[in-house]
């Protein structure tokens, strides 16, 4: 075991991928000389050179599209977008090309591109750097959507994504980059097709992902102090969803609360509630509840930003309300 951070774990994954496969290269805004806007790629330019670590102009559509084209041409690009708000400038390429070309070509072409981006709020960056749009992307058939929330997943999801023949989007919560802890020295690729039970419990199922996982685990600890054992599911992969793990837990606890930093309306949380209705309605002892972001562009002021996001107190309160 070694002490590391989420940021270092992502960097280690990129470095290992570049060492192992000359087709892998990293490109994005300020990934080279600057070291990445969240310092993820610090040092990689010196180690691998400018052909493997490519600074791009501020042209999200062109460089994301170029990543898609390069993947179609046999390379294994890792494209970094600074934040998911900026990814909207590349939405045409992601949605109309990456997600569709396999299908539109009748299965002839694969797009093995990996697109990483920061997501989420909590750093007082206001309404154009703080949103959680992974739920939107999870709406789109043809792409896979990952949300690593742990050091193991930060280290292990990227290599699996690079092996995948289809486009994979990885959403790294900006609040997690400094997350520190112990990681096994032989940590490596992890599966990207299943959710994980991060804490076992029998009274209520808490379903969450990404930056909200740690708040949810903290809420579960607080509830345990009150004698309520909550089971915490980390979705890990937002598309395709692992229904089986969710339903198995709901059948055990008969209660569910979804914690999602996305907005409530038309959200990933809404999708999970619908699936529980479809697959496990008669198992429930209470209506499924949701703790989501307030329906407001994320504000700058610290107290307002805090109030807009799912917090431990809100998760605890939602569980208490479930239990009546």
């Amino acid at each position: 075991m070694s002490r590391t951070t989420y940021r270092e774990a992502v960097r280690a994954a990129i470095r290992e991928a570049m060492q192992g496969d000359p087709r892998v290269f990293l490109m994005g805004e300020d990934v080279g000389a600057y070291g990445g806007c969240y310092a993820v790629s610090m040092g990689l330019l010196d180690e691998f050179g400018a052909d493997r670590v490519r600074d791009t102009p501020l042209s999200e559509s062109a460089f994301v599209g170029a990543g898609i084209g390069a993947a179609m041409g046999g390379q294994r690009p890792i494209v970094e977008i600074m934040t998911c708000n900026f990814s909207l400038l590349a939405l045409d390429q992601i949605m109309n090309n990456a997600a569709t070309i396999r299908h539109m070509s009748g299965g002839q072409l694969s797009i093995p591109v990996v697109i990483r981006m920061a997501t989420g709020a909590g750093r007082q960056l206001a309404a154009q750097h703080s949103h959680s749009l992974e739920g939107w992307y999870a709406h789109i058939p043809g792409i896979k959507v990952l949300a690593p929330a742990t050091l193991e997943d930060a280290r292990g999801m990227l290599p699996t994504a690079l092996e995948d023949p289809d486009p994979v989007l990885i959403f790294e919560h900006a609040g997690l980059y400094n997350l520190a802890g112990e990681l096994a020295d032989d940590a490596g690729a992890v599966p990207i097709d299943r959710a994980a039970v991060r804490r076992a419990g029998d009274r209520v199922t808490l379903v969450t992902y990404g930056g909200s996982l740690h708040k949810t685990l903290e809420a579960a600890e607080r509830l345990a102090g009150e004698g309520v054992e909550a089971e915490v599911i980390d979705l890990r992969t937002l598309r395709p969803l692992d229904d089986a793990t969710i339903m198995a837990s709901v059948r055990k606890t008969h209660r569910a609360v979804i914690v999602d930093e996305g907005w409530r309306s038309g959200s990933l949380a809404a999708e999970i509630v619908a699936r529980i209705m479809e697959q496990a309605l008669y198992e429930l002892d209470a209506p499924v509840a949701r703790v989501c972001s307030a329906e407001v562009p994320i504000p700058y002021a610290k107290h307002l930003e805090h109030a807009a996001l799912p917090q431990v107190e809100g998760i605890v309160a939602a569980v208490r309300a479930q239990l009546g």
Binding site: R23, F25, D51, S61, A62, F63, V64, G65, A66, G67, I68, G69, A70, A71, M72, G73, G74, Q75, P77, D92, Q93, N96, N97
Partner: peptide, 18 residues
């Protein structure tokens, strides 16, 4: 998508260049 093919072409060419 008008214009949508241009980034793809840059990428295909980049793949050949690499």
């Amino acid at each position: 998508i008008v214009g949508g093919g241009l980034p793809l072409a840059v990428g295909l060419a980049l793949a050949d260049q690499r």
